[in-house]
Nucleic acid binder design. Structure first.
Lengths: 107, 107
DNA sequence: GCAACCTTGACACTGCTCTGTTAGGTTTCG
DNA sequence: CGAAACCTAACAGAGCAGTGTCAAGGTTGC
């Protein structure tokens, strides 16, 4: 055994097989492949799927928001521009995200 | 004078009046109001509009990504969850954002 | 007072995210 | 072998972001 197929991983993480394929294409959770092309989900991938699910369910975080965090850490020019902009805004932007979060929870 | 109406602010920042109203509703740039309800854009708002425009044009950053940054700084639980998730993923998420950025630039 | 500009609200369209489903074909397992 | 599960690709549809435009009415400035 050693690793799970897409259906087995789906059953254990609460995602649908469709979504696991989507997440792979999105670059968020990328399993190894068997010789015949089957996806192989190991412990690492299962943990990623669980924490990703929690991030989305509990905090309403989307894919690009997550990826943006990575980008911020790796592009100093972008980070500087964002911080400059933040200086003048602050609270109002927080309101926006909170309202979005409420919408997600209501659905 | 002292402050600009929505049309004047639009002319000076490159946004359309429609977008300035949209940005206000989104909570990103919120002008004061005159006694009769007209929006009043001052220096602060003009600078916010310019830096916001640069963030979007040069870096392809969207509203929720910006707001998410603020949220990260203010919700320690969220920040911790994101960092936990980041530990297992890293490069692949960056790829995603870069591909999105390329799509935006191509349009 | 009238033209030009403002206000809100609504309709509409493009494009993207997320998710399901269906179709045609391959692999695994009992 | 045959059923069940996998693969890719495609179509589909809700929902939201972003943007324009139009309508009905209020405000400003010459």
């Amino acid at each position: 055994m050693e690793s799970l197929t897409v259906g087995q991983a789906a059953a254990r993480t609460g995602w649908s097989p469709r979504m696991l394929r989507y997440l792979e294409r999105a670059g968020l959770v990328i399993p190894a492949r068997s010789a015949s092309g089957y996806r192989q989900y190991g412990l690492l991938e299962l943990n990623q799927l669980r924490s990703l699910g929690e991030l989305r369910r509990r905090f309403g975080v989307g894919i690009d928001e997550l990826a943006f965090t990575v980008r911020l850490q790796q592009e100093p020019a972008l980070q500087a521009a964002v911080e400059t902009w933040l200086a003048g805004t602050q609270l109002s932007a927080l309101d926006w995200e909170q309202r979005k979060h409420e919408r997600l929870l209501a659905a």
